[in-house]
Design a protein around this nucleic acid. Structure first.
Lengths: 227, 227
DNA sequence: ACGAGATAGATTGTCGACAATGTACGCCTA
DNA sequence: TAGGCGTACATTGTCGACAATCTATCTCGT
């Protein structure tokens, strides 16, 4: 098997473990958006001291899941249309670049692996129609692979470590719905084809459109929720 | 006056202060690239406990100035041709995007301010020809303004807080040299003109070329040093 | 009654010491 | 002599307590 991405090595320290737990809790909405983070409370809840907890909070700030103000504490980030727009503007650009670089740097073996992954997703999708959670994970896996294929460590770090938890947060909390799911597969297929053909320009374009479509999808959900 | 950028608020905490000192020391090469970071030693040197120091180290890792391995310590990043290439690939793209967004979002007042800044740079450049340090600062100031003009907080954060210390490190340690300096002014002028005309596409293109030229310049220096 | 200032409580920032882990040296064996 | 093993040392991770700062409430004056 492969590891989702380099930074997600298995947690060796207490700070690592609590980070993963809080990340999950925020992304899935267990800790409400906008709510205040209390260090003493969390320390009790996870049964550790404030030192590793603060380490975890520093990393949570790094991936934009919380916002800290010196001497005043931290709050869980709040989802907003503007935030979504800013995030996806960046994502379109960065993942477009990742595609372009992947077309240059991915090995044939890596491309084959991604294709097998897509086939696997397709079959599992047919089995459980509509179960969007697995689709969610599968989609992210595809994007991860392409990003890693860029072989640009800074780009990988920004997308996988700093931006993707937020992306997941929007997707999980607003709920990805059905009709878009089947299209996504075709779009993934087209992207990996372009990469396989070493057509970076096309791969870039297709990825931008793919993400733009995803953004419109989430935007709708957000508006629907607002009304 | 204005503040260089939002994240560079005045340091309120001990961790903030020591962060700035170590950042400067690494960027300017006072702490040698590749050297090991010893927490106890730095704690003594800056006369504080390890708690705020570790906070600072976490932020240094965030801006890629050091690399940490759990239970094994941190090392100062090493400059390399590959690293430079990866960094500037990203920078071209991101600052290009920043220009495009700045063309949409900058107010006329902000554009006027940047133009005044450029005139100021031009006159001060004529006075002290060849003093690359001030040019260095001036160039960064121009880029900061444009990046802030994008009004995209994620983009601003990535460029100003996470990537620019590394950019400065390459520029300072490899030394920006003369002939390029005068051209940079013209290129800056062209970029702000495109932004003023609300021509995002052109501004994007010009910025990419501007940064590509800067990259080639530094690349030369690196090769020259390697031989 | 309303706003400014003071005070009490809680929270964050910092400290020094201990525990867990990694590193390096010397020793023993083949 | 070369290589693996074990021990001693140094470094990092974690803990509980103290100091500095902020927030909310209460009081007082106009």
């Amino acid at each position: 098997m492969h590891q989702p991405h380099p930074a997600l090595r298995q947690p060796v320290t207490a700070a690592d473990r609590v980070l993963l737990e809080i990340q999950r809790a925020i992304v899935e909405g267990d800790i409400a958006p906008g709510s205040k983070i209390s260090e003493p409370e969390l320390a009790r809840r996870f049964d550790l001291s404030r030192a590793p907890l603060r380490e975890a909070l520093a990393r949570l700030e790094r991936c934009h899941l919380i916002e800290r103000i010196p001497n005043a504490g931290a709050r869980v980030v709040r989802l907003s249309t503007n935030g979504l727009l800013a995030l996806y503007q960046l994502r379109e650009n960065l993942e477009g670049l990742a595609c372009k670089l992947a077309a240059e740097h991915m090995t044939d073996a890596e491309i084959t692996e991604v294709r097998q992954l897509l086939d696997q997703h397709l079959s599992s999708q047919r089995v459980r129609e509509g179960e969007s959670y697995y689709q969610e994970a599968g989609d992210l896996d595809f994007h991860y692979r392409v990003i890693l294929g860029s072989k640009n460590s800074y780009l990988i770090n920004i997308l996988c470590d700093e931006l993707y938890y937020l992306v997941r947060m929007y997707r999980v909390q607003l709920g990805m719905n059905g009709p878009r799911v089947s299209r996504a597969f075709d779009e993934h297929k087209a992207i990996i084809n372009a990469i396989a053909n070493r057509d970076g320009e096309l791969a870039d374009l297709l990825m931008r459109r793919h993400i733009a479509a995803s953004r419109r999808n989430i935007e709708q959900q957000l508006e629907q929720m607002g009304t």
